[in-house]
Protein backbone atom coordinates (compact mmCIF):
# COMPACT_ATOMS: atom_id res chain seq x y z
CA UNK A 1 0.00 0.00 0.00
CA UNK A 2 1.23 3.51 -0.78
CA UNK A 3 2.28 5.57 2.19
CA UNK A 4 2.36 9.23 1.20
CA UNK A 5 2.29 12.01 3.77
CA UNK A 6 -1.43 12.56 4.14
CA UNK A 7 -0.89 16.29 4.36
CA UNK A 8 1.54 16.82 1.50
CA UNK A 9 -1.09 17.52 -1.13
CA UNK A 10 -4.62 17.63 0.24
CA UNK A 11 -6.14 17.08 -3.20
CA UNK A 12 -4.33 13.79 -3.79
CA UNK A 13 -6.01 10.80 -2.17
CA UNK A 14 -4.09 8.06 -0.43
CA UNK A 15 -5.12 4.47 -0.80
CA UNK A 16 -7.25 2.89 1.87
CA UNK A 17 -8.05 -0.79 2.14
CA UNK A 18 -11.32 -2.15 3.50
CA UNK A 19 -10.59 -4.53 6.35
CA UNK A 20 -14.14 -5.16 7.49
CA UNK A 21 -17.61 -4.57 6.10
CA UNK A 22 -20.62 -4.49 8.42
CA UNK A 23 -24.10 -4.56 6.95
CA UNK A 24 -26.00 -2.23 9.30
CA UNK A 25 -29.36 -1.73 7.61
CA UNK A 26 -30.84 -2.41 4.18
CA UNK A 27 -29.14 0.69 2.75
CA UNK A 28 -26.41 1.44 5.30
CA UNK A 29 -22.97 -0.15 5.55
CA UNK A 30 -20.13 0.46 8.00
CA UNK A 31 -16.57 0.02 6.79
CA UNK A 32 -13.43 -0.42 8.78
CA UNK A 33 -10.42 0.52 6.71
CA UNK A 34 -6.72 1.05 7.14
CA UNK A 35 -4.38 3.66 5.71
CA UNK A 36 -0.63 3.78 6.14
CA UNK A 37 0.36 6.89 8.05
CA UNK A 38 -3.07 7.59 9.53
CA UNK A 39 -2.60 9.94 12.46
CA UNK A 40 -6.10 9.84 13.88
CA UNK A 41 -8.90 12.39 13.79
CA UNK A 42 -11.01 14.64 15.96
CA UNK A 43 -14.72 13.84 16.54
CA UNK A 44 -16.91 15.43 13.89
CA UNK A 45 -14.25 15.43 11.18
CA UNK A 46 -14.81 13.77 7.83
CA UNK A 47 -12.84 12.15 5.03
CA UNK A 48 -13.33 12.50 1.30
CA UNK A 49 -13.77 8.94 0.06
CA UNK A 50 -13.45 8.10 -3.60
CA UNK A 51 -14.24 5.12 -5.77
CA UNK A 52 -11.94 5.41 -8.74
CA UNK A 53 -13.78 6.15 -11.92
CA UNK A 54 -16.99 6.94 -10.09
CA UNK A 55 -16.43 9.95 -7.83
CA UNK A 56 -15.74 11.28 -4.39
CA UNK A 57 -18.00 12.12 -1.41
CA UNK A 58 -17.50 13.49 2.11
CA UNK A 59 -18.22 10.93 4.84
CA UNK A 60 -18.01 11.55 8.60
CA UNK A 61 -15.76 9.35 10.66
CA UNK A 62 -17.86 7.26 13.03
CA UNK A 63 -15.30 5.28 15.02
CA UNK A 64 -13.55 5.76 18.35
CA UNK A 65 -10.80 8.35 18.77
CA UNK A 66 -8.63 6.00 20.77
CA UNK A 67 -8.12 3.38 18.06
CA UNK A 68 -5.81 4.73 15.37
CA UNK A 69 -5.33 1.36 13.73
CA UNK A 70 -8.52 1.68 11.72
CA UNK A 71 -10.78 4.30 10.21
CA UNK A 72 -14.51 3.70 10.48
CA UNK A 73 -17.10 5.15 8.12
CA UNK A 74 -20.83 4.51 8.03
CA UNK A 75 -22.32 5.12 4.60
CA UNK A 76 -25.86 5.22 3.24
CA UNK A 77 -26.45 4.12 -0.33
CA UNK A 78 -28.19 7.18 -1.77
CA UNK A 79 -26.30 8.18 -4.94
CA UNK A 80 -23.88 6.84 -7.52
CA UNK A 81 -20.73 7.29 -5.41
CA UNK A 82 -22.22 6.09 -2.13
CA UNK A 83 -23.75 3.18 -4.05
CA UNK A 84 -20.30 2.23 -5.36
CA UNK A 85 -18.81 2.65 -1.88
CA UNK A 86 -21.47 0.47 -0.28
CA UNK A 87 -20.74 -2.23 -2.85
CA UNK A 88 -17.09 -2.50 -1.76
CA UNK A 89 -16.05 -5.71 -0.09
CA UNK A 90 -13.27 -6.66 2.33
CA UNK A 91 -9.92 -6.12 0.66
CA UNK A 92 -11.18 -3.46 -1.76
CA UNK A 93 -9.06 -0.35 -2.25
CA UNK A 94 -10.50 3.15 -2.34
CA UNK A 95 -9.20 6.71 -2.23
CA UNK A 96 -9.15 8.76 0.94
CA UNK A 97 -8.36 12.40 1.67
CA UNK A 98 -8.58 13.81 5.16
CA UNK A 99 -9.40 14.15 7.91
CA UNK A 100 -10.96 17.54 7.32
CA UNK A 101 -13.19 19.99 9.11
CA UNK A 102 -13.60 21.63 12.49
CA UNK A 103 -14.47 19.05 15.15
CA UNK A 104 -17.17 18.88 17.81
CA UNK A 105 -15.90 20.96 20.78
CA UNK A 106 -15.92 18.01 23.16
CA UNK A 107 -13.32 19.67 25.40
CA UNK A 108 -15.81 22.45 26.11
CA UNK A 109 -18.21 19.88 27.55
CA UNK A 110 -15.87 18.70 30.31
CA UNK A 111 -17.45 19.07 33.74
CA UNK A 112 -20.82 19.82 32.21
CA UNK A 113 -23.97 17.86 31.38
CA UNK A 114 -24.02 16.65 27.79
CA UNK A 115 -27.06 16.16 25.56
CA UNK A 116 -26.58 14.44 22.22
CA UNK A 117 -29.53 14.60 19.83
CA UNK A 118 -29.25 12.53 16.69
CA UNK A 119 -31.65 11.54 13.94
CA UNK A 120 -31.36 8.76 11.38
CA UNK A 121 -27.86 8.42 9.95
CA UNK A 122 -26.91 11.46 12.08
CA UNK A 123 -25.97 9.01 14.82
CA UNK A 124 -22.80 8.11 12.90
CA UNK A 125 -21.07 11.53 13.11
CA UNK A 126 -21.81 11.81 16.85
CA UNK A 127 -20.70 8.28 17.69
CA UNK A 128 -17.06 9.37 18.27
CA UNK A 129 -18.38 11.80 20.91
CA UNK A 130 -20.28 9.00 22.61
CA UNK A 131 -17.17 6.81 22.66
CA UNK A 132 -15.24 9.68 24.22
CA UNK A 133 -17.96 10.35 26.82
CA UNK A 134 -18.09 6.66 27.75
CA UNK A 135 -14.31 6.19 27.84
CA UNK A 136 -13.88 9.24 30.06
CA UNK A 137 -17.22 9.14 31.83
CA UNK A 138 -15.92 10.77 35.03
CA UNK A 139 -15.01 13.95 33.16
CA UNK A 140 -18.63 14.81 32.36
CA UNK A 141 -21.89 15.44 34.20
CA UNK A 142 -25.15 13.78 33.18
CA UNK A 143 -24.95 12.36 29.68
CA UNK A 144 -28.11 11.98 27.63
CA UNK A 145 -28.48 10.57 24.13
CA UNK A 146 -31.77 11.17 22.35
CA UNK A 147 -32.02 9.30 19.07
CA UNK A 148 -34.78 9.37 16.48
CA UNK A 149 -35.28 6.88 13.68
CA UNK A 150 -37.86 6.35 11.00
CA UNK A 151 -39.03 2.98 12.29
CA UNK A 152 -37.80 0.22 14.62
CA UNK A 153 -36.25 -1.57 11.63
CA UNK A 154 -34.24 1.53 10.74
CA UNK A 155 -32.50 2.10 14.07
CA UNK A 156 -28.79 2.48 13.41
CA UNK A 157 -26.22 0.77 15.70
CA UNK A 158 -29.13 -0.94 17.48
CA UNK A 159 -26.91 -3.40 19.36
CA UNK A 160 -24.62 -0.65 20.59
CA UNK A 161 -27.61 1.49 21.58
CA UNK A 162 -28.85 -1.44 23.63
CA UNK A 163 -25.49 -1.67 25.42
CA UNK A 164 -25.49 2.05 26.12
CA UNK A 165 -29.08 1.91 27.40
CA UNK A 166 -28.09 -0.75 29.91
CA UNK A 167 -25.50 1.54 31.50
CA UNK A 168 -26.60 3.31 34.65
CA UNK A 169 -24.46 6.35 33.90
CA UNK A 170 -26.04 7.16 30.53
CA UNK A 171 -29.54 8.32 29.70
CA UNK A 172 -30.47 6.86 26.34
CA UNK A 173 -33.91 7.34 24.78
CA UNK A 174 -34.93 6.23 21.31
CA UNK A 175 -38.02 7.36 19.47
CA UNK A 176 -39.35 6.24 16.11
CA UNK A 177 -41.64 8.13 13.75
CA UNK A 178 -43.69 5.01 13.17
CA UNK A 179 -43.90 2.10 15.57
CA UNK A 180 -44.95 -1.45 14.91
CA UNK A 181 -46.51 -4.23 16.96
CA UNK A 182 -43.12 -5.25 18.38
CA UNK A 183 -42.01 -1.76 19.37
CA UNK A 184 -42.54 -0.84 23.01
CA UNK A 185 -40.59 2.41 23.11
CA UNK A 186 -41.34 6.02 22.26
CA UNK A 187 -43.19 7.02 19.11
CA UNK A 188 -42.97 10.60 17.91
CA UNK A 189 -40.35 13.10 16.86
CA UNK A 190 -37.01 12.95 18.66
CA UNK A 191 -37.37 16.56 19.74
CA UNK A 192 -40.34 15.49 21.85
CA UNK A 193 -37.92 13.52 24.05
CA UNK A 194 -36.22 16.78 25.01
CA UNK A 195 -39.23 17.79 27.11
CA UNK A 196 -38.66 14.92 29.51
CA UNK A 197 -34.84 14.93 29.43
CA UNK A 198 -33.03 15.62 32.70
CA UNK A 199 -30.17 18.12 32.34
CA UNK A 200 -29.13 21.47 33.77
CA UNK A 201 -29.67 23.90 30.88
CA UNK A 202 -27.28 26.45 32.34
CA UNK A 203 -24.47 23.91 32.49
CA UNK A 204 -25.01 21.73 29.44
CA UNK A 205 -23.30 21.32 26.10
CA UNK A 206 -25.43 19.87 23.30
CA UNK A 207 -24.35 18.11 20.10
CA UNK A 208 -26.99 17.77 17.41
CA UNK A 209 -26.77 15.87 14.13
CA UNK A 210 -29.41 14.80 11.65
CA UNK A 211 -31.61 16.20 8.90
CA UNK A 212 -31.49 20.00 8.93
CA UNK A 213 -35.15 20.48 9.86
CA UNK A 214 -34.73 18.10 12.79
CA UNK A 215 -31.64 20.00 13.92
CA UNK A 216 -33.50 23.32 13.79
CA UNK A 217 -36.32 21.91 15.91
CA UNK A 218 -33.87 20.34 18.34
CA UNK A 219 -31.86 23.54 18.70
CA UNK A 220 -35.01 25.57 19.29
CA UNK A 221 -36.20 22.99 21.82
CA UNK A 222 -32.89 23.19 23.67
CA UNK A 223 -33.11 26.99 23.76
CA UNK A 224 -36.70 26.74 25.05
CA UNK A 225 -35.34 24.44 27.76
CA UNK A 226 -33.05 27.27 28.83
CA UNK A 227 -29.79 26.53 27.03
CA UNK A 228 -27.59 29.24 25.53
CA UNK A 229 -27.38 29.11 21.72
CA UNK A 230 -23.58 29.15 21.96
CA UNK A 231 -23.67 25.83 23.88
CA UNK A 232 -25.59 24.05 21.12
CA UNK A 233 -23.43 22.59 18.34
CA UNK A 234 -24.74 21.26 15.04
CA UNK A 235 -23.05 19.38 12.22
CA UNK A 236 -24.01 20.80 8.85
CA UNK A 237 -24.25 18.96 5.57
CA UNK A 238 -23.79 20.97 2.40
CA UNK A 239 -22.45 20.34 -1.07
CA UNK A 240 -18.86 19.64 -0.01
CA UNK A 241 -16.64 18.78 -2.95
CA UNK A 242 -13.02 19.73 -2.33
CA UNK A 243 -13.06 19.43 1.46
CA UNK A 244 -10.51 22.18 1.95
CA UNK A 245 -12.32 25.43 1.22
CA UNK A 246 -11.10 25.93 -2.34
CA UNK A 247 -14.02 25.20 -4.62
CA UNK A 248 -16.71 27.19 -2.82
CA UNK A 249 -19.53 24.71 -3.41
CA UNK A 250 -20.31 24.44 0.30
CA UNK A 251 -20.31 28.15 1.04
CA UNK A 252 -22.82 29.08 3.73
CA UNK A 253 -22.87 32.85 4.09
CA UNK A 254 -19.41 33.90 5.27
CA UNK A 255 -18.04 30.38 5.78
CA UNK A 256 -17.19 27.20 3.94
CA UNK A 257 -18.84 24.25 5.65
CA UNK A 258 -15.98 21.89 4.74
CA UNK A 259 -13.20 24.06 6.14
CA UNK A 260 -14.81 26.22 8.82
CA UNK A 261 -17.31 23.52 9.80
CA UNK A 262 -19.05 21.19 9.49
CA UNK A 263 -19.65 21.86 13.20
CA UNK A 264 -21.01 25.28 14.11
CA UNK A 265 -22.88 26.62 17.12
CA UNK A 266 -26.53 27.57 16.95
CA UNK A 267 -25.87 31.25 17.69
CA UNK A 268 -23.92 31.40 14.41
CA UNK A 269 -26.17 29.11 12.38
CA UNK A 270 -29.63 30.30 13.33
CA UNK A 271 -29.64 33.51 11.25
CA UNK A 272 -28.04 31.69 8.31
CA UNK A 273 -30.58 28.88 8.40
CA UNK A 274 -33.34 31.47 8.18
CA UNK A 275 -32.05 32.48 4.73
CA UNK A 276 -33.65 30.08 2.28
CA UNK A 277 -31.29 30.99 -0.55
CA UNK A 278 -28.23 29.78 1.37
Amino acid sequence: MLAPDLHTDPMVPVLARVTRRIHELSDIVTFEMEVDGWQGFAPGQFNMLSVFGVGEVPISISGPLSDRSKIIHTIRDVGPVSHALCALRKGAVLGLRGPYGAPWPVEAARGRDVVVVAGGLGLAPVRPILYELIENRDRYGKVTLLYGARSPREILFAEELGQWRSRLDLGVEVSVDRGDEHWHGHVGVVTGLLRAADFDPANTTAFVCGPEIMMRFAANGLVEAGMAATDIHLSMERNMQCGIGLCGHCQLGPVFVCKDGPVFDWAFLKPLMAVKEL
Binding site: D27, R76, D77, V78, G79, G119, G120, L121, G148, A149, R150, E154, D177, G188, V189, T191, G192, R195, G210, P211, I213, M214, F217
Partner: peptide, 19 residues
Amino acid sequence: VERLHDTRVQMLDLYRARS
Protein backbone atom coordinates in the same frame (compact mmCIF):
# COMPACT_ATOMS: atom_id res chain seq x y z
CA VAL B 1 -49.36 23.61 19.51
CA GLU B 2 -46.50 21.24 20.36
CA ARG B 3 -48.56 18.32 19.09
CA LEU B 4 -49.24 20.21 15.86
CA HIS B 5 -45.57 21.11 15.37
CA ASP B 6 -44.41 17.58 16.16
CA THR B 7 -46.97 16.07 13.80
CA ARG B 8 -45.82 18.41 11.04
CA VAL B 9 -42.21 17.26 11.45
CA GLN B 10 -43.28 13.62 11.72
CA MET B 11 -45.20 13.92 8.45
CA LEU B 12 -42.10 15.21 6.65
CA ASP B 13 -40.53 11.77 7.03
CA LEU B 14 -37.13 13.39 7.55
CA TYR B 15 -35.10 10.21 7.93
CA ARG B 16 -36.08 8.84 4.54
CA ALA B 17 -33.04 8.37 2.30
CA ARG B 18 -32.64 11.21 -0.18
CA SER B 19 -30.20 11.22 -3.05
